[in-house]
Amino acid sequence: MLDAGLCRYVLISYGHNAFSSASLFTMLMDFAGDDAVFGHFGATGGYALAARRAMHEFNTGPQTWKHIAVAQRAWANLNPHAMMHGKPMSFGDYLSSKYVVEPLRLPDNCLVNDGGRAVIITTLERARDLRHRPAVILGLGQHNPSVQVTQSGTLTGSTGARKACETALSMAGVTRDDVDACQIYDCFTYTVELTLQDYGFFGPGEGESWFSEGTIGPGGRMPVNTSGGQLSEAYYMGLTPLSEATMQIMGRCKDRQLGPATQTKEPSIILVSDNGGILQAHSCCVLGRI
């Protein structure tokens, strides 16, 4: 539409009073359909089924996921807008927290909150004349296996993430080694592990050791979900990771800004993911700087 000159600016926005209304709960209850007959509701249950199968097939579980939850909480503590700002979390806090649907504990779940987020897209030519340095969309990829959780053979990977990422990197003309940071759709900790695994950052079961070196937190070599993400900043569906990647490339993240402020690499390339259903849809975006 932008290229064809049909419009000049496109606003992508998300807003929801999910916390102060019943609408999210109602949507998830409808989503359950006849699964409700067996007491199976919402997204946590579906991801718990996927996560449990993964624990059977390769080395994963709370000892892997604690690194994701704790690192993202550390990022949130550098972000005054984050719901969990000022609420630090240790490995001990994580491991002693209550199960919601086992094997997923409360801090494995994304937040429910009110709020909104938006990004504006325009042509690169126009963007060059704007006040802020833009983030550039270098590549996009989508893959949607789409099979419902009970019949799915890909709950433990590879999900649509693998092909979506390959497509996006190839369009951008970069490789995984060029990626400086990731903003991963993190409805649950397990989603972060599986997405990074399908993206090829580590093999099945190698996540625990990959994460354990402080890899994704402040000061880490591959920062992930630097706003705190959906787990610790706020849930705005795909706009949480997309807006954070945009802000990081633009250099507008203050205390949590990638680069010298957080002893991390200044980002030229950020990988962004979005995910739908119970690992049924995936899109990947490569953002870069000019």
């Binding site: 209850m29 007491g39 449990r52 086992e102 094997p103």
Partner: peptide, 10 residues
Amino acid sequence: TYAVYHVAFH
């Protein structure tokens, strides 16, 4: 696979 519910959503 299986999941253990510790919260009643209904």
